[in-house]
Simulated scan of single mutants.
Amino acid sequence: MTATTWTAESAASGQYAEVNGINLYYETYGDGRPMILLHGGLGSGEMFGPILPALTDHHQVIAVDLQGHGRTADIDRPLDYRLMADDVAALIDHLGLREPDVVGYSLGGGVALQVAFRHPEKVGRLVAASANIRRDAVYPELLQQQGQVSAAAAEFMKDTPMYELYQRVAPRPEDFPKLLDKIGAAMAEDFDFTEEVRGLRMPTLVVAADADMAPPSHYIEVFKLLDGGLRDGGWQGDGRPKGGHALAILPGLTHYDIFRSPLFAAVTVDFLDRES
């Protein structure tokens, strides 16, 4: 993976919005039904560059740089999914959007879920990709690796696309070690959103790679909380989950390339364009 594979070729309109105590950067692409697009940890909206043409074919995509990521400078608060979700909700209000779809990957998937939990009236359809709802679902060896993410790891990350991107676009490139400290602290927090997921009412698509950070069974568990995978769907689809929820386990992918896969774009657009 190189930095260039993360770069969008489409022309974008980049702007800042003063919302919820943060100067939030976002880029707007295309026209049509609005889609809020949320990137993964240590990335930015540019992560989706390879699939933006597919996403923007008939959708307006608003790619947000979350707190401390991309062109959004960090502020004096922890990297908390709930606070970042409130940022996104405030941006939705700032832009005057009515129930946009919210699509997020990894960190962005967790934030997207929190937007849906905390501000359900602001979300049309929800796509949560590679987003785990319990910390203990993640493979133990990965949890061990996450425990090593801190400012001390900055030197070892200088050859990664995440570091290159941050140095190129961040308002304060020297803050990269601080971002690693905050990411490490956030990943160390235990969480279990089982009950919150069970209460989701907007149509929700659960997406994962077949070799993701948690086993496919975890994402099937999430789907079951949404009334999925409990019975035959029926010839007319009347046995499908109540509420229009869906599940996609994408073949041949991992947590680290799903966000730029044409398969991810295809299932996302297909789900968002459904009428029921």
Rank of each mutant, 00 (worst) to 15 (best):
Tyr163Gln: 06
Arg172Phe: 08
Phe191Ala: 11
Gly124Thr: 10
Leu180Ile: 00
Asp101Phe: 10
Arg118Pro: 00
Glu221Tyr: 15
His39Asp: 07
Gly109Arg: 11
Ala89Tyr: 15
Thr268Asp: 08
Leu38Gln: 07
Tyr163Lys: 05
Pro173Lys: 08
Lys178Phe: 03
Gly110Trp: 12
Arg231Asp: 12
Ala131Thr: 13
Lys182Glu: 07
Gln148Glu: 02
Pro161Phe: 14
Gln145Phe: 01
Gly70Trp: 08
Tyr25Gly: 03
Gly234Gln: 05
Thr254Glu: 04
Ala211Leu: 01
His59Asn: 02
Val115Ala: 11
Thr194Trp: 10
Gly199Ile: 04
Tyr105Ser: 03
Val127His: 15
Lys122Thr: 15
Ala151Leu: 01
Leu253Pro: 00
His69Ala: 11
Leu113Asp: 11
Ser276Gln: 11
Ala265Thr: 03
Arg198Trp: 14
Leu180Asp: 01
Ala131Pro: 07
Arg274Tyr: 02
Val127Ala: 13
Thr194Leu: 11
Gln167Lys: 06
Gly184Val: 02
Ala8Pro: 14
Asp31Gly: 00
Ile133Leu: 12
Asp210Asn: 13
Arg240Phe: 15
Gly32Asn: 06
Glu18Ser: 07
Tyr25Val: 00
Pro34Asn: 06
Ala85Thr: 10
Gly96Ser: 11
Ala154Cys: 03
Leu95Asp: 08
Gly41Phe: 05
Tyr81Thr: 07
Gly49Asn: 03
Ala131Cys: 06
Gly147Gln: 01
Tyr26Pro: 02
Asp31Ala: 08
Thr72Glu: 08
Glu195Arg: 12
Gly49Glu: 03
Glu189Trp: 03
Thr2Ile: 02
Gly184Pro: 00
Asp57His: 13
His59Met: 04
Glu141Ala: 04
Ser10Trp: 11
Gln148Val: 00
Ala12Asn: 08
